[in-house]
Design a protein around this nucleic acid. Structure first.
Lengths: 196, 196
DNA sequence: GTCATCCGATTGACAGCGTCAATACAAGGG
DNA sequence: CCCTTGTATTGACGCTGTCAATCGGATGAC
């Protein structure tokens, strides 16, 4: 055993416990001492696995970004090969994850509480829309009558998805059906942006 | 003098001091004690004006929302009476405010740190896009070839503006010019959403 | 003019927090 | 067998928000 007698066991326990506290009471409740208490260890035990609270929250964010990307990418891959369908499937799964885990999603974008120099986190954020980027370029390639370059459309899509979800989570508007299309509002928005 | 010898003076001083700390070091630095210290009063003096830290942050958010709405609404009113121009002017001013005061904008949407029951705050958030809503309805009324109802378009606009700004503030993408339109990216996005 | 009242500010205390230092303990390698 | 290494504990520090008790000065009544 290379790295201590049960290295990794407490680390994962702390992460799982912290996610429970996060889901229940929000990121403010995820304190090192509260996580240690809920995990049954002393208040300084987490220091062996996370340098400080920022490192703990960063590890949580990495875990959540992996979950989000895995879910959304799987939904995209399972959709029909048309770029439109893949983009919508991705956005649907993305929105579903965020609304199902509002405290996690909020924490994932609390960049002032996370470690901006963390490579894993930065890579996950940068690569979140990697698959969608291909879809957007495919869409733009075969359907050039829409104005705007592909990068602008990708940024528009990620902006509207993030903004919609953030507003929904904060209760600024509620789930609704678009009147003219009869589809969930966020789907109607995405469809309108990528053209019909 | 109805309400004490210099009631209101310290309150406003605390708010101004707190905004300074917020701009410099972020919302985490806006603690009651730090604000009191920087204002030259004892650590418990703010309690006479703000019940707790949440109330202080809520007062800051109210102030900032007023500033944002005033600026964006003024820009909208100063624009040509065409709905398109007014929406774009509003969005431009909105984005400019958020990018000029990133810590303020972040704090304004930290609903978990603010008082969700505060009437003034709720009214400001609800009424942020009041003017734009009229423009969107005017746009939909005279230009019905676009799909989607007006409410969906308004939500799409507010979502994309908020999401774009949040991502920019967090450094997830940078200022850029849309290749095909030659305009700032956020303008190109808005124009594409409301039709040319 | 004097006094009572009251609002605002101060001081002091408490628990909880992050973090650091010192210590204890168990396992593995020389 | 000892000693190094990594993990967990205990204790302490200063910071935070919040509460209670106190003080002080200006207002208003008389």
């Amino acid at each position: 055993m290379k790295r201590g007698q049960h290295h990794g066991a407490l680390r994962q326990l702390l992460i799982d416990t912290a996610l429970g506290l996060l889901d229940r009471d929000g990121v403010e409740a995820v304190t090192i001492r509260a996580v240690a208490r809920a995990s049954g260890v002393s208040h300084a035990a987490p220091a062996n696995h996370f340098a400080d609270r920022r490192a703990l929250l960063t590890a949580l964010a990495v875990q959540c970004f992996i979950d989000l990307r895995t879910g959304a990418s799987a939904a995209r891959a399972a959709a029909s090969p048309s770029p439109r369908a893949r983009i919508i499937a991705f956005a649907d799964a993305y929105v579903a994850y965020a609304l199902a885990h509002p405290n996690r999603y909020r924490m994932m974008w609390r960049m002032d509480m996370l470690d901006p120099g963390d490579r894993a986190l930065a890579d996950l954020v940068d690569g979140l829309y990697a698959g969608v980027e291909e879809d957007v370029r495919a869409l733009r390639g075969k359907d050039a009558h829409n104005a705007g370059d592909a990068t602008t459309l990708l940024i528009a899509l990620s902006s509207v998805v993030h903004g919609y979800v953030a507003m929904r989570i904060d209760g600024n508007f509620v789930a609704a059906i678009d009147e003219t299309s009869g589809k969930p509002r966020h789907e109607a928005i995405i469809e309108q942006m990528i053209g019909q």
